[in-house]
Simulated assay, not measured.
Amino acid sequence: MRIEAIGMSSCLGPAVTACAAFRAGITRQQPSEAVTTFVPGDSEAQPVNVCAIPGITLGFSGVGRLVAITEDALGDLGAKTSLADLGREAGVFLALPDFADPGVAPQVRVATQEALGRQVLGRALAGQGVSWPEDRWRFFTGGSAGFALALAAARQELVRRTFDVVVVGGVDSLVDPEHLRFLLAERRLKSADNPVGLLAGEAGALLVLRKHSSGGISGMTPRVELLAVHTSVEQRALGAGAMPDGGALATCVQEVLRACPDQDVAFICDLNGEQRRAWEWGSALVRLKSLVPSLGDSPAWVPATGFGDVGAAMGAVGACLAVRAFERRHAPAHQLVIASQSDSGERAAFVLTAAGAPHAGGSR
């Protein structure tokens, strides 16, 4: 299954610009205009830095902010392929943040997600002046693993030939003031007195996949292909104070590696500055290294260093980074594995490669 086009909205710009900026180590942090914090011993409020998208999200919050991000990502995608043509044939699989109240019944959660998705995607498409059939829309939660869940479902529908082409993406914002205050109260934000916190970000990224294709993005080679995707649940992530042992995450990576023709692998991982994720990723690497010793020395990219923690958009952003790395021939390995660690327990991995493309190596 080949990736034909990508589109992105991020603090570093659209897809091509953002991926180049990430490789160059460029960051774009700014103080939140709505949220500050007090460090013990200080008499003045300290800023909370975020990775906000310049311009397009200014003045928006909640659903409106997601709509603005999605519309911007669609605009970038539309610069590479016809949105009107996509609408006539594509299924849409979109990962979004979970807006349902904790503890609600599963059917209520599903209904809430469906309503949110239709509102976000419908308004974003209207902003681009196009209309896609709503019966082809599918929406997913699952935190940073949500994109992989959407990707797995889309892949299944391509195999069944329900669709010949699909649009798969993720959209999220942790920069919204209400969410920032929640993260601050939970002591999860990076600050002067909490160096192991996350840097809140926001992004939207979309990929067009087709089971059979005549070329890569914009007719360029190499052709980037999805080899495998696997999802699981880490039970130890759900208890208060529990520390995941990396078992579920390692299983996801191990399963997608079975589809790889060799063990020349690099990782795009879901580290965000928090100790729990670092502990779990390290534990997963120990398990993987016991099976394939070379994996312990595999290069790893961390999207959060450039984009901040982008929640449900993480997997899609990672996929865009991989696609551009293969396109520009600076991928550090023949296969790039994108791994996800969700706060709600979902774990996922998927692997991309480029048919017949040599890699140039490099740290980014």
Rank of each mutant, 00 (worst) to 15 (best):
E89Y: 04
A90D: 07
R109T: 08
L94D: 02
A100S: 15
P106Y: 11
P102E: 14
F93T: 09
L94A: 05
G91I: 09
T112M: 10
V110E: 15
A95T: 07
Q107D: 14
G117H: 01
P106D: 12
D101M: 06
Q113H: 11
L116I: 01
A111M: 11
A84W: 05
P106K: 14
L116P: 02
L121E: 01
G87Q: 05
G87T: 01
A95S: 14
G103D: 04
R123V: 07
V92C: 12
G122T: 08
Q113P: 13
A90C: 13
G122H: 05
G122F: 06
L96W: 03
F93L: 11
R88H: 13
A100T: 00
G117C: 11
G103Q: 09
V104W: 00
A84C: 04
A111T: 14
F99G: 06
Q107W: 12
R123D: 15
P102A: 11
E89D: 10
G91T: 11
G87K: 08
L86G: 05
R88C: 12
P102M: 10
F93Y: 15
G91M: 10
A111P: 05
V108L: 14
V92F: 13
D101H: 01
D98T: 10
Q107M: 07
A95Q: 05
F93Q: 07
F93R: 06
F93E: 05
P97C: 02
D101Q: 13
A115R: 13
R88I: 11
V120F: 01
E89V: 13
A95E: 09
L86Q: 07
A105Q: 15
G91Y: 12
T112W: 04
A95W: 07
L121F: 15
D101L: 07
R88P: 02
L116R: 11
R109D: 03
V110K: 11
G91V: 10
D98W: 02
G117I: 00
F99Q: 05
L94P: 01
D101T: 14
V92Y: 11
F93M: 08
E114I: 02
P97I: 03
E89T: 12
G91P: 01
L94F: 05
R123M: 13
L86Y: 06
L86I: 11
Q107V: 00
L121S: 03
A100L: 05
Q107C: 03
P102L: 09
A100H: 14
V110I: 13
A105G: 00
V110G: 05
A84F: 05
F99M: 14
E89N: 09
G103R: 12
